[in-house]
Design a protein around this nucleic acid. Structure first.
Lengths: 214, 214
DNA sequence: CTCGAACATGAGGACAACCTCACGTTCCAA
DNA sequence: TTGGAACGTGAGGTTGTCCTCATGTTCGAG
């Protein structure tokens, strides 16, 4: 209240009529597409409005500024991402470790292909200030924590501090390779990701070894 | 000649007098600092000039545009980076594999701490168009090729196609973790990088195993 | 049907960043 | 010493983008 009447980065008006609700979604989709194509800085609010077949005025009725648009896109994506991760891991609770790994990687490859803004969001979200950063960090942290919990289940002997850092490494590694593989052509990208799962499996085998040898 | 009188992204005037040579270096250093602090897009040529204790006019005598400044910073960094990699690997030619790995990671941790623009350059270089991208890709490719050659030496039985992709994975992974660790506090960053070498070692052990069993 | 509220529009104000250019200063070869 | 080349300067032209607001349109409850 002291700082600003208007909550920064939050949608400005929640649409009630069907017409405007469609428009709202169209703007978010357009924003995702434009951010995906040129990145946050080079994206233009006018380009987004044009892509959504609407006018700048309407766009600014819903979003107070450009960052709010990005936040909207990011939050939708992060929500889908955490949901996907939780679904995949819950579905295979107790499954052999390599199977779980493959399932998660596979699911995220699909997500990355379905969501064109994935790359743009993750490359800008942590560099930006404000709510986007928080959302991204929350999403990341959620996945790391869940991974740590799962990992602890597979390797009960591991000290908690180590579990934490191993989980972080796993998540960072898989995310980074999903990221990097975008710079490769299709077959090489596939090869890189396959090799990634091999690497992670070899690593996991070493960590989980004490359990087998117990 | 057909497209532009002026080579894009190249320095405009090569300084001859000592005074201007100092200025040229000062501008590059200032550019590196500013790019490091706020990234490419948010960096301002005026801020760079101010930081270099000079005027915009002088800045534009040496660099035709903002991208040329970034290219200059990037090329200096990439040159140091390839030189460092080559030096470290040449120095330990034939050394045991884990030792080589630790040496390379250690050297790059130091480089990353010495060069403030490291993060900014690598996060923007591949997203930008033009010469910066080429330089970055050349640098990356050089390191991957050298890694592949070294790897082939340690594991002569590995098919060349596999060697190539394994080398790419190793380089991408180490680079990504150096990158990611910047988001962590000092002790956690150290832990992440230590854990990274453990992972890579476990992976390498599996790949190199046929040699031991030969 | 009617009237107020919700919604939509796009020309243009405000501002910020890149880059130029005309003028002034420093250097050095002869 | 001196003339000309190299160098240095910073106010401002140009451009492009964010965002506003006054005006017009559509919707739906009563």
């Amino acid at each position: 209240m002291l700082f600003s009447m208007e909550l920064a980065d939050r949608p400005r008006r929640i649409p009630t009529q069907a017409r405007s609700r469609r428009r709202y979604e169209a703007i978010l989709d357009a924003a995702a597409a434009v951010f995906a194509e040129v990145g946050f800085d080079a994206a233009t609010t006018e380009a987004i409005a044009a892509r959504a077949d609407t006018s700048i005025g309407s766009l600014y009725q819903f979003f107070p500024n450009k960052r709010a648009l990005f936040t909207g896109v990011a939050e939708r994506l992060m929500a889908r991402e955490t949901a996907l991760f939780d679904a995949v891991t819950a579905e295979r609770a107790g499954a052999p470790w390599p199977e779980l790994l493959d399932a998660v990687v596979g699911a995220f490859v699909e997500l990355r292909e379905t969501e064109p803004a994935w790359h743009a969001v993750w490359s800008s979200a942590l560099a930006l200030e404000g709510e986007v950063k928080d959302t991204a960090e929350r999403c990341h942290q959620h996945i790391v924590s869940r991974t740590a919990a799962i990992l602890a289940g597979y390797a009960p002997g591991l000290p908690p501090a180590r579990v934490e850092i191993v989980a972080a490494l796993l998540v960072e590694t898989v995310a980074a390779m999903l990221f990097a593989s975008l710079r490769y052509d299709a077959t090489r990208a596939r090869a890189l990701l396959d090799e990634t799962t091999r690497m992670v499996r070899a690593y996991a085998a070493e960590i989980l070894a004490p359990i087998d040898a117990k």
